[in-house]
Design a protein around this nucleic acid. Sequence first.
RNA 1: GGGCGAGUGGUGGAAUGGUAUACACGUUGGACUUAAAAUCCAAUGGUCGCAAGACCAUGUGGGUUCGAAUCCCACCUCGCCCACCA
Length: 830
Amino acid sequence: MPKYNPSKIETKWQKIWEKNSSVWQAKDFSKKKKFYTLFEFPYPSGEGLHMGHLRGQTATDIFARKKRLQGYNVLNPIGWDAFGLPTENYAIKNKIHPADATRKNIASMKAQEKMLGYFLDWPREINTTDPKYYKWTQWIFLQLFKHGLAYKKDIPINWCLSCKIGLANEEIIDGRCERCGGETTKKNVSQWLLRITKYADKLIEGLKDLDFPERVKTSQTSWIGRSNGADIDFSVKDTKHKIRVFTTRPDTLFGATFMVIAPEHDIILNLKKKISNFKSVEGYIKKAKTKSDLERTELTKIKTGIKLEGVRAINPVNNEEIPIFVADYVLSSYGTGAIMAVPAHDQRDFEFAKQFNLPVSTVIQPSELIACAFYKIKPKYLFNRKQLEPESELTEAARLSGKYKGDVYTGTGVLINSGDYNGKRSSDAAKEIVTDLEKKSAGKFAINYKLRDWIFSRQHYWGEPIPIVYCGKCSVVPVPENELPVLLPEVKNYEPTDTGESPLAKITDWVNTKCPKCNGPAKRETDTMPNWAGSSWYFLRYIDPGNDKELADKEKLKYWMPVDLYEGGMEHTTLHLLYSRFWNEFLYDIGVIPTSEPYKKRVPHGIILAHDSRKMSKSFGNIVSPDEMVKEYGADTTRTYAMFIGPFDQSIAWDKNGLKGVWRFLNKVWDNMSKPNGNDNLLEEEKQSLIIGVSKDIESFSMNTAIAKLMEFNNLLTQKNSISFEIKTIFLTLLYPFAPHISEELWQSLRNKKFLFESTWPKAEKDVKQKYNYVIQINGRKKFVIKDDFDLNEKDMIEKVLKIDKISKELKDGYKKAVFVKGKIVNFVI
RNA sequence: GGGCGAGUGGUGGAAUGGUAUACACGUUGGACUUAAAAUCCAAUGGUCGCAAGACCAUGUGGGUUCGAAUCCCACCUCGCCCACCA
């Protein structure tokens, strides 16, 4: 037997697999049970595959290979999420067409995928920039438009000064552009938005039955940020105007001593004549608008604002007159852009009140229940204490229970100074107050979300054109479905314009078109879609990638959906994962697809950091490429080490030295499998637990411990001079998902007729005699270990143990009691 | 400020109520070699001891239990995400 030479055997097997790939490719409507594994399709970047791909895609490949051997009809596809800014920027810099750059990058990444030995359904490969693909992205947009979920609105958008592009809130990190890190500001632009907020409740509700990690669910839920409360109208004295506020605490309404509205609020202009200090108010607003979000959040401690002189609001619950302020701590984008300020029970309002010397009126007293919870006593007992010193006891308990923020009690309790509602509990009072206001048409129950509508316009070239036409007569007209796709035209210059318009706006013969309705002159929409669009439905297209009649055949969708396992990065939790769930739920609602939730199970992977524990990044110069590793050690070692390095869902620093350990392991496997066949069954117990352990670990993505178990078993084999054929085949099958090339090669050297990829996953035998490993303890400390396959009951076991010299010596004064756990321990308490 | 998670040898980590430190890296000693690399063998949490062995160790301090890295409470440290969300 020659030495293990990965570079030789790996290309050999990759060719054989390719030739025989039909054996593995997913078959529509197969009678086998289907299993749809999905890995987030990569962005074809010039830098090639990075470590995140290596980790995620290797794990997915391992899982899929195991499922195939277990007899499933596995769909494990791949495609390219190819629209987006980096390619556009690269094209601008290097003066080539983004489509050419994309083609080039895909070719080299495809070679990398093959080099790593991933078995993927290449005939189903998709590319979001392919007109045959984005035809359907545009089609979905039209459906959203027809159902009123896509609309245009003039809104202040986040604007990146260096990319010259509008950004979604989600694309801004610490007030800076997510892509280039440049400064951002606000700019008023007419933008397309998708009404994702209409699906907010469904998106929360849908999570319930999904097999997602809890942290993914909670972060989606808190991102959507549903809060129940009420809208309450405050009228402005001596005018017809009303200011509506949203509050989650209607029970504190009597404590509202002033109002605050956002600088962007419309009412300010409406009240222009009444406001005696309008000039200075205008000055404040101007200043607030030029502040970037970064500045606005940096100054969280100091509240600024200005009083609207000459106008007062009326509290609908007690007709009290209160002053109105404009301040930028109130956001125009949440709720109604106005608040009732209750300084006694809200920390921000309290800070503002202190700054402007405004009255603070306490209306909530900490409930005795807080004191009970804190002192861990029953309410009955508290009443006795309450008679002694009720105020201080309650306040102290509330303070200690953490419901005090600074000097402000923000918890619930019992109402005081609240007219007819005095003595009622917060929750009851809130309901009654709103119900009473409803009768006067001054308020109603309301729900608000932190989630905003999805800004869907981009003023860039490299994206899907939005299929809309503007006609002087018919206004906004959707492009008829039979005219899709609206092709992205050729353009000389990809650079965005300074005016904020898309480069498409300059191509007049493309922009000028006929109105589909009246045939009159019309202009095309020149905005393109964000790069999240193509990825919001790609999992559906894999199911039927060639279909030009519909986005995918209904019967095929029915067979394959939902995705059984979706592997991807934690960073996509609140963006891609939420957007694609939204589109999927929408398509389900209009009857296009059969399942409301796209992903049954989500498994996120941790980031691989550089050896210095920083993120791998060009600017740090600490990027490691899979290419170098494959060159030095081969794909099998690279794959296996990427899994062995640590727990799959945790971030971990790359350590090149560790590769050696896996390399040594595979070399030892090579040597062991080359030993003569023996016929001993000495490893029966270990064999059983290996099969069970590796199968279970792959299923739960504990790839590192699965490999450790294989190593441990292999170390046992190293001590043998001969190994039975059965053990060899089982071991190779279990190793195969991790290191497929070496496993196939060794499998073939065993003169197996079929290929390993046509083989089946081993099952553990049920009726193997279990050996018991008893730990004998005294007071919970280990004293002795007995290993045997005896199967004794408690009494006999204790008797047996007491005969052991060492134990009987220690127990010569007797023992209080003995704890017996079958198969595990005997513990004597003395 | 809020939410989530984590803290175990020199290092990555294993063990989720029952033998703490599996597996691997590294280190030290030895074999092979002119030498090095590679490979193989042995040792490797700490303290005491010639040894058998004993005691101490899972961020800190308490608690629950026959028994705690694991469960509960408080504190400390680190990481990630969100953040003036009314």
